[in-house]
Each structure stands twice: as structure tokens, then as C-alpha cells.
């Protein structure tokens, strides 16, 4: 860990202005990511602006039934918020499947969107990593890549996006509101995280002097069933090997609307649009779920140690769709 200057911001505007004026600045909220990576010497901010006291902690419906979530709402508060539990159960489930209670108590909504990969070569400054040091290469490609992505990778980076919460957000749909020196702008959640391509170090559609201030969810799918199935090595405090978040609305025994997203297998939160298309209007049964699962993994490109993720992700999808269907039926009853 290298020394850095620390300042506490008392307004969003001043936080953004302070950041704008600096080289190598960083915001800190819960600190669950930044401090970890600073200690590992992976992130080397010279100036850290503490935003944790800023008024961005509200969860409330705005205009057309869209839930707006302040960027500093903790993971714990969000997962247990009555509106989230009632209208966005997938989001609640996904958050509670992530990290540990202690981390969720500290971690913020905005911070979760900015979460960085757990790739061990990214976290080891002695290793080659295009994400940490553009152009240095990718040690994971020929190294230990059991945890790495089978979807969305490039020859430059195969690091998995680690978030559970973002998988639910990908399925639900959302807008990210950013504030910069020149005002605010909205980014569609599906475009917020970038594929690595040739620039794996550019992870999100956000500039160094922009701050996430809020997240606004798409209107809830209703009536619906939801299920988040996270498959992992151990039962808690563990990142996904494969996770599937599913929302289903039923029309009799047929699927009405379907949403599906994957975690643990892709370089960004992975919405499965083709699979959703396959599901719509079809019987809510195993054969349909399996077809959707096939489609979702059709483009998978496994490496030496992570081929198991392809069938595992299919299993997560089929189970999530089954459980979401059951949930929808129970909801109707």
C-alpha cells in the first residue's frame, strides 16, 4: 500500500470537482474493493475522495413505477428493502447470494457496479494483465483459468465480472445515472459494462471524473416468478462458477415474458436475449428450458480449465427457469 491523500466530500458537486482536478484519484464508499486492491498494490490512487456521507441513500419509486436507488444504498439495505423484496425479488436474492454479511453491510450499490474482477493475475502485480497494465499480456489465457469467462472474452482478456447483483440488474433492466463536471447523463445498464475487446482496462462507460449517483430499475415484470441460482465451490463467501437469474411471467401453462441473465461465466453481466426469445410463448417445461440453455451457451469458448462451466451454466439456467416458473405458479395461487 502506498500513501495517498484523503478527503471527505460534502456534496456530489464538490466530489466530482475534486476528482476532476486530480490525476489518479479514486472515490471510496464502502471501501470493500478499493482498499483491498490498494493493499495489493493493484490500484495506486494518489487522492481518495470519500463519498460515503453524501445524500445518495434513498430507495423510492419515481414517476412510472421505476424504482430509483441511491448509489450509496448498502447491499444489505437494498436486499431487504420492502419494495425490492416485493417487486424485484430477483435483485434481493442475487444480492444475498453475494459476498458475506459483513461485506454487504459495507458495500454500496454504485460500488457494486464498479466491482473489479477476481482474476488472480489481475490481483498479482507480478503477473501480465492487460486490464491492470494495458499491453502487458494475459497470463490467465495459458495459466490457471478455471474461474474465467466462457462468454464475452477476447484474446486480450477473459476475466469474469464477479457481481451477483449486476446479474439481476441485467435481467431486470436499469438506467445508471452519472454526474460529471458538466452535469448528469444516463447510461443503459446493458451498455454500462463493456466487453474487454482490445481495451480490457476500460471496464465501464464512465469517465474518471464521473460519479454514479443513482440506479433506476425498469418497471417490474408482473405477475412474475423469480429465481437466482448460484453454483459455486463453497456455499457462501464465494464467487459464482455459474449463476443464472431468471424472471418468468406465465400465461396459463405458457411462458409470457421471460428474462434471463448469467453470472460467473462472462466478462460482463450477461443478458441472454436469444434464450429469452426462445422462451416466450412456449410451454413452461424442461424441454423449453433446455433449448433456452443451449442457446444461451451457444457461443461459449471454453479454455483449458473452465470447460465445465458450459454444462454447469446450462444447469443453472434450467434450474433457475424451473424455480422461477414454480414461483410464478405459487404467486398465482
Amino acid at each position: 500500500m502506498r500513501t495517498f491523500a484523503y478527503a471527505r466530500a460534502d456534496s456530489v458537486e464538490r466530489a466530482v470537482d475534486a476528482q476532476h482536478a486530480q490525476q489518479a484519484g479514486a472515490f471510496v464508499a464502502g471501501g470493500t474493493l478499493l482498499l483491498d486492491l490498494v493493499k495489493l498494490d493493484v490500484m495506486r490512487p494518489q487522492q481518495v475522495t470519500d463519498i460515503s456521507a453524501l445524500p445518495m441513500k434513498e430507495v423510492a419509486f419515481v414517476d412510472d413505477d421505476r424504482l430509483r436507488i441511491g448509489a450509496l444504498v448498502t447491499n444489505t439495505d437494498l436486499a431487504h428493502h420492502p419494495d425490492v423484496r416485493q417487486h424485484y425479488p430477483l435483485l434481493s436474492q442475487a444480492i444475498l447470494n453475494g459476498a458475506s454479511t459483513q461485506i454487504r453491510n459495507m458495500a454500496s450499490t454504485g460500488g457494486n457496479l464498479m466491482q473489479r474482477t477476481r482474476c488472480p493475475y489481475f490481483r498479482d502485480v507480478a503477473a501480465a494483465c492487460n486490464k491492470r497494465e494495458p499491453g502487458s499480456g494475459c497470463d490467465a489465457m495459458q495459466g490457471i483459468n478455471r474461474m474465467h469467462a466462457v462468454l464475452g472474452g477476447s484474446e486480450h482478456c477473459i476475466a469474469v465480472h464477479p457481481s451477483d447483483m449486476c446479474v439481476a440488474l441485467a435481467a431486470i433492466g436499469a438506467t445508471v445515472t452519472l454526474q460529471g463536471p458538466d452535469g448528469t447523463r444516463d447510461v443503459d445498464f446493458g451498455n454500462f459494462h463493456r466487453l474487454p475487446g482490445e481495451t480490457p482496462h476500460q471496464e465501464q462507460d464512465i469517465t474518471d471524473d464521473e460519479l454514479i449517483v443513482a440506479l433506476t430499475l425498469a418497471p417490474p415484470l408482473a405477475p412474475q416468478g423469480a429465481a437466482y441460482v448460484k453454483l459455486r465451490d463453497r456455499a457462501s463467501y464465494e464467487f459464482a462458477l455459474a449463476a443464472a437469474g431468471a424472471m418468468i411471467s406465465l400465461d396459463g401453462d405458457m411462458i409470457g415474458e421471460a428474462r434471463l441473465a448469467l453470472g460467473g461465466v462472462a466478462t460482463k453481466p450477461w443478458r441472454c436475449a436469444e434464450a429469452e426469445e426462445i422462451l416466450r410463448g412456449q410451454p413452461a417445461e424442461t424441454a423449453t428450458f433446455e433449448r433456452a440453455a443451449e442457446a444461451a451457451l451457444a457461443d461459449a469458448q471454453p479454455l483449458e480449465h473452465n470447460a465445465f462451466k458450459v454444462p454447469l451454466a446450462r444447469q443453472a439456467i434450467v434450474r433457475a427457469l424451473r424455480d422461477a416458473t414454480r414461483d410464478a405458479k405459487e404467486g398465482h395461487a
Binding site: P120, A127, Q142, I144, D233, R234, A235
Partner: peptide
């Protein structure tokens, strides 16, 4: 313990990536 097969560097020297059972297990 996961040692890189190319150069014998230990790649999971932390309590997150080296997995002991937790309460939920």
C-alpha cells in the same frame, strides 16, 4: 493450493480464493 503449472507461482494465497469450509458449508 493452486500453483501456476508454467512457473510454480502460487495463485490463490488468500482466504477467499483458497477455500476452507465456511458456516454455510
Amino acid at each position: 493450493l493452486e500453483y501456476d503449472p508454467r512457473d510454480a507461482r502460487l495463485m490463490n494465497s488468500n482466504a477467499s480464493d483458497y477455500r476452507v469450509a465456511v458456516h454455510a458449508d
